[in-house]
């Protein structure tokens, strides 16, 4: 509903955004794909030329890749499980009539605003350190042997930290969805004789289904790229025990200076993210006509 003139203007006004994003997306991605088929190492400049699928064979064939892929799945899956279930529970709890709701919300949301390296370092040193961490003190008080979390359970420890950061996000979104459920609908269900469990099962859960889907998809996008938490806690180790795909690419490409192999890993990461993205786009796209 506009004139040709307005539409022409509109195209002009949109051009800068479209152009910069197009460059941002196409140029580096194209280069990554190009590098992934080249022999290119900053340490060994003699090694040049077309590599074919060599880099992919090298990256995917390496046991570290299988481990990183498994770690990525465990990391994403574990965090999703904790945050979705915990978030649903917390959202339901915060939706109850309680004293100090405003302050409660602030307390619960706060971890999300803590930058990843800070979150990781607080947990690593203040809580999970076997000597002076709070969990160590707690174990000692209970007469148990303190656990060296990052040495014994490196991936699990990273999952705990990341889940702590993302639980507020899930809670906040699920709470928002919950509060958009009309009071009348709940009351109607109550009048119809539905008890609390049935109200949750038949009224509340279906209403939140969409929000849960969106939480899962958006978190997955971010969780696939978890980096800083690993960098400042375990450095991906011991060995490759807590290295995910993102960190593997960083280790190969930047730390080991193998541009070709790192790029091949990057392409794999892009492919994995795209699979998730397709589902997310569908979920968001449906809402776009509204």
């Amino acid at each position: 509903m506009a004139t040709r003139q307005t539409r022409t203007l509109a195209r002009t006004m949109m051009a800068p955004a479209v152009i910069v994003l197009l460059i941002w997306m196409a140029v580096p991605l194209g280069m990554t794909i190009w590098f992934s088929f080249q022999n290119y190492s900053l340490i060994n400049p003699m090694m040049t030329g077309f590599a074919g699928w060599g880099n992919y064979e090298y990256v995917i064939g390496d046991p570290s890749f299988t481990q990183a892929l498994l770690n990525t799945l465990l990391l994403v899956g574990g965090v999703l499980l904790i945050t979705v279930i915990g978030g649903t529970f917390l959202a339901l709890l915060l939706d109850q009539p309680v004293w100090g709701q405003g302050i409660l919300r602030i307390l619960v949301i706060s971890p999300f605003f803590v930058m990843p390296p800070v979150a990781a370092l607080i947990w690593k040193n203040g809580f999970m350190h076997p000597g002076y961490g709070m969990l160590g003190h707690l174990y000692e008080a209970l007469g148990l042997e303190p656990v060296d979390w990052f040495a014994q359970y490196p991936l699990f420890s990273v999952i705990v930290i990341v889940a702590w950061q993302w639980l507020p996000f899930a809670t906040l979104i699920l709470l928002t969805a919950l509060q958009s459920l009309s009071e009348e609908q709940r009351e109607a269900a109550e009048m119809d004789g539905a008890n609390a469990v049935n109200r949750f099962r038949y009224i509340i859960l279906p209403h939140m289904a969409r929000a849960i889907t969106i939480v899962i998809l958006i978190q997955t996008i971010f969780l696939l790229g978890i980096f800083a938490e690993i960098r400042v806690t375990t450095g991906g180790g011991p060995g490759y025990a807590s290295t995910n795909i993102a960190f593997l690419v960083f280790r190969t490409g930047i730390l080991s200076n193998d541009i070709g192999a790192g790029s091949a890993g990057g392409v794999v990461a892009v492919i994995i993210a795209n699979i998730v993205a397709i589902f997310l786009m569908r979920a968001v796209g449906k809402n776009l006509d509204a």
Binding site: M14, A17, V18, L21, W24, M25, V27, P28, L29, M31, T32, F35, I221, L224, G225, F227, I245, A246, V249, F250, G253, I254, I259, G262, S263, G265, G266, V267, A269, V270, I272, A273, N274, V276, A277, L280, M281, V284, G285, L288, D289
Partner: peptide, 25 residues
């Protein structure tokens, strides 16, 4: 709508996928 969705999709590109070229550039 397609443009909006496409813009969203650029957000989903994992940073590691473009880290190396960006680093070199």
């Amino acid at each position: 709508k397609d443009i909006l969705m496409w813009m969203l999709s650029t957000k989903m590109m994992p940073a590691v996928g473009v880290l190396i070229p960006i680093y070199l550039i």
